[in-house]
Design a protein around this nucleic acid. Structure first.
Length: 828
RNA sequence: GGGCGAGUGGCGGAAUGGCAGACGCGCACGGUUCAGGUCCGUGUGUCCGUAAGGACGUGGGGGUUCAAGUCCCCCCUCGCCCACCA
């Protein structure tokens, strides 16, 4: 009878080891580190909108490889998982299916948890958390109250972004190109009283602390945050608006980054939709202004922000007086000036600002150059000169350069009390209230006697009422308002009748502190145990998508700084290092239902197995590159795993006795294993996997046509291959570990083995191939000892047949000798 | 319009200023197999050449250097981000 050799069977392997891991639970983080150094490796937690998809598969393969690496290096690693489980999709599903959002949420969480386990994630499952559990959101409310006490959470009426489809307000950060980030509907403005976090108080620190992150955060993310915060330094300048004869004069302040161009201000513009415009307009111009304002209000933000639009505006009938030269300039209202940036009013310097120039040309307003740019006249070319130059037409400031002029003019304005240095930010306060149900209730009570009253800490959590199905249908006010029993309360301060705030918090509030909760997920005395946070935080490596570059990452940094100021933590940046994986795309395009190019993770896992998919994700390229699924080969990954498995199977469980084994195998293994370590530390997993493929081929050759499977060096190579491959292919590696004789069921899992460290003496080359170039082209290769001296090498190179042939009859001008690897002969 | 990043075989991608194309996919040929697939081996940048060998070659152009995919300048193309923020 012919006995078939054993074969790599990933299905059987997955089934076998997932059961064992479930029992052993091998990836729990330690307590106080037992003397070991710590690493906190954090994957962005998951939103439970369905099962895991291809994007998750890539991101989590990266995070898991990093976490597993540090475990094998002997660190105490915290690698937790949880769910960002409040949010609109669950609520919309509940309305559709007439049930409770929690049902949908928990079903999806269970599905994802099972998928994570199948995907062999090395999570500490004991720390799992859900932001929609009252045991979690109790502390979200507690944090809100602390922010409130410090004046960092406040309510104000203002025009806010309104999504007509989701029937809720949105934060600035959630409006992308005038549309709702989530559903794509065009966002409109509504004047509403809403809750805000005063993130603008932290603008400077959010900006300045970024230098700590340089080098360990993607440059692109830092840049996006810088742009988003948008700090501009300049001056505020007071213009007097000439009054009607019977009225007192008014002062309107403008912000400018170019106070040096003050002499070039030839008109004055206020935002058409600001209250200021309505106050300034004269009775004669009132009708024209009202008509213009109506026209502006009809525009959507998208139309309004289109930069190639013709400039529009209307004269308000009054004049402003320039504080530096007393010049009277016309006051206009226009929609190119924004009501909510700076002071909502500008001085227009058309010669040196393109927008002002476009406006001046549209309405025939004067243009005066005050910076000598030596170019053609902007009034004629239509191109404003925005660069540096010496001042002209600027009275006492003529001849000054930009920086000096800005400093001098600002000082002089301040001395006459008509201006001062000023800083402005693009960043606005974080609008956190939402008129939806499935979120954290805002723990504030409104009392006719006492006004806003915080819910006392010992009355937390304010638990959501039990609403479901049609109770949740959007009607422009929060669904919580219809839960009358829930809304009606007694005032915690005076005991009189009061009502609960019916808004819920933006889910980004939940995710702004979850990384702290993981340190002590069941702690009852506060949001986190200070001891545990001191032990684990900050996060050493955060892994997730770049789509959170300004939302989640900025908010989390803000929260961390506030907690630092409260004295609750002793660090001001939560994430020391950040890695953004690329997207998984298909045929050059991101996957979408409408394109029909979606790839289902479950189908891929069923077809190729977990290890092959993880390996494919990581081998496809550097982590931050996009991966096109049409360009990669899970089949190839599977073949590699089968080859590796056959090596383990051939080497088997018999431990050879004594000796280092075959010298060449030993050195080859050492070199490759060493290179894998370097590649993993640099997050070049594609290169690490390439080296493991080479290692596998080397061992294959050693078994078939070298010293054979029982050589000690071959065995050691096989063990190391197993340990290193376990970062990427945990199932196959565990099976290999068992094949090599380890008692996995008894707790000797490969994921808790020791990362190989090679003897440095094995990495020193015994013979080096020296490349000899003539004029930079390779003409000969010499085998030389690594310690060869310059003179000897030079002599050998010049004597070489190939070199002489290439030189021909030309004389040698220079010889560059870089022992032992390179000689470059330069002929005359 | 502004900012940032990237362009390397048929494809994904390697390469501290020092042998361009590691590793893989694909393809070709050979072996194994009743056959197909699997598996094993060999080859595979382009051009000239039976071969030995040679010429060319990292988007285009210029420069620095003994030596450039890598550094500098200009241009082209693509991608991403921001976009009337005074």
């Amino acid at each position: 009878m012919n006995e078939d050799p054993p074969r790599y069977d990933w299905r059987a392997i997955q089934e076998r080891w997932s059961g064992v891991w479930e029992k052993l639970d091998p990836y729990r983080a330690g307590g106080p580190h037992e003397g070991k150094p710590k690493k906190y490796i954090l994957d962005m937690f998951s939103y439970p909108s369905g099962d895991l998809h291809m994007g998750h598969a890539e991101a989590f393969a990266i995070g898991d490889a990093i976490a597993r690496y540090w475990m094998l290096r002997g660190f105490d690693v915290l690698h937790p998982i949880g769910w960002d489980s409040f949010g609109l999709p669950a609520e919309n599903a509940a309305i559709r299916k007439n049930d409770h959002p929690a049902d949908y949420t928990h079903a999806n969480i269970e599905t994802q948890a099972q998928s994570f386990k199948r995907y062999a994630m090395s999570f500490d499952w004991s720390r799992r958390l859900h932001t929609s559990d009252s045991s979690y959101y109790r502390w979200t409310q507690w944090l809100f109250l602390r922010f409130y006490e410090r004046g960092l959470a406040y309510r104000k009426a203002s025009p806010v972004n309104w999504c007509p489809d989701d029937q809720t307000v949105l934060a600035n950060e959630q409006v992308v190109a005038g549309k709702c980030e989530r559903c794509g509907a065009e966002v409109t403005k509504r004047n509403l009283t809403q809750w805000f976090f005063k993130i603008t108080d932290y603008a400077d620190r959010l900006l300045d602390d970024m230098h700590q992150l340089e080098g360990s955060w993607p440059e692109r993310v830092l840049l996006m945050q810088r742009n988003w915060i948008g700090r501009s330094t300049g001056a505020e300048v007071d213009f007097t608006i000439e009054s009607a004869p019977d009225q007192p004069a008014e002062t309107v302040t403008v912000f400018t980054t170019r106070p040096d161009t003050l002499y070039g201000a030839t008109f004055f513009v206020v935002a058409a939709d600001s209250p200021l415009a309505g106050q300034l307009v004269t009775p004669e111009q009132r009708a024209a202004f009202d008509a213009y304002l109506a026209q502006v209000r009809r525009l959507t933000d998208i139309e309004r922000q289109s930069t190639d639009r013709e400039k529009t505006g209307v004269f308000l009938g009054r004049r402003a007086v320039n504080p530096v030269n007393g010049e009277r300039i016309a006051v206009w209202a226009a929609d190119y000036v924004l009501a909510d940036y700076g002071t909502g009013a500008i001085m227009a310097v058309p010669a040196h600002d393109q927008r002002d120039l476009d406006f001046a040309r549209a309405f025939g307003l004067p243009v005066r150059r005050v910076v000598d740019s030596r170019g053609p006249d902007p009034a004629e070319t239509g191109v404003a000169t925005t660069g540096d130059g010496l001042l002209v037409n600027s009275g006492p400031y003529d001849g000054l350069g930009k920086d000096v002029a800005i400093a001098r003019i600002t000082v002089d304005l301040a001395a006459r009390d008509t201006g001062k240095p000023a800083v402005n930010y693009r960043l606005r306060d974080w609008l956190l209230s939402r008129q939806r149900f499935w979120g954290v209730p805002i723990p504030i009570v409104h009392c006719a006697q006492c006004g806003e009253v915080p819910v006392p800490d010992d009355a937390l959590p304010v638990v959501l009422p039990d609403l479901r199905g049609q109770d949740l249908a959007p009607r422009g006010v929060s669904p919580l308002a219809s839960a009358t029993d829930w809304v009606q309360v007694t005032c915690p301060r005076c005991g009189g009748p009061a009502t609960r705030d019916t808004d819920t918090m933006d889910t980004f509030v939940d995710s702004s502190w979850y990384f702290l909760r993981y340190c002590s997920p069941t702690y009852e005395l506060g949001p986190f145990d200070p001891e545990a946070v001191r032990a684990w935080m900050p996060v050493d490596q955060y892994v997730g998508g770049v789509e959170h570059a300004i939302l989640h990452l900025l908010y989390s940094r803000f929260f961390t700084k506030v907690l630092f100021d409260m004295g609750l933590i002793d660090f001001a940046e939560p994430f020391l290092a950040q890695l953004n994986q690329g997207q998984v795309i298909n045929q050059g395009k991101s996957m979408s239902k409408s394109l029909g190019n979606g790839v289902d993770l479950g189908v891929e896992l069923d077809a190729h197995g977990v290890d092959a998919i993880r390996l494919t994700m990581l081998f496809a390229g550097p982590p931050e590159d996009d991966k096109d699924w049409a360009d990669v080969s899970p089949t190839g990954s599977g073949k590699f795993l089968a080859r590796a498995w056959r090596v383990w199977s051939d080497v088997g469980a018999v431990v050879p006795s004594g000796g280092a084994g075959d010298h060449d195998v030993c050195r080859g293994v050492a070199r490759l294993v060493h290179e894998v370590t370097g590649s993993v530390e640099g997050y070049r997993f594609n290169v690490a996997i390439a080296r493991l493929m080479e290692l596998t081929s080397l061992l294959r050759r050693a078994i078939d046509s070298g010293p054979g499977p029982s050589d000690p060096a071959v065995r050691e190579g096989a063990e190391w291959l197993t340990v290193q491959l376990s970062l990427f292919a945990p199932y196959a590696a565990e099976d290999g570990w068992a094949l090599l004789g380890h008692h996995v069921e008894g707790g000797d899992v490969v994921g808790r083995a020791t990362w190989p460290v090679v003897d440095p003496s094995l990495l020193v080359d015994e013979a080096v191939t020296c490349v000899v170039q003539v004029s930079g082209k390779v003409r000969a290769r010499l085998q030389v000892p690594p310690g060869i001296d310059e003179g000897t090498l030079r002599g050998l190179a010049l004597a070489d047949e190939g070199v002489r042939r290439a030189l021909g009859d030309r004389a040698v001008r220079t010889v560059i000798v870089r022992p032992p690897g390179l000689v470059n002969v330069v002929p005359a």
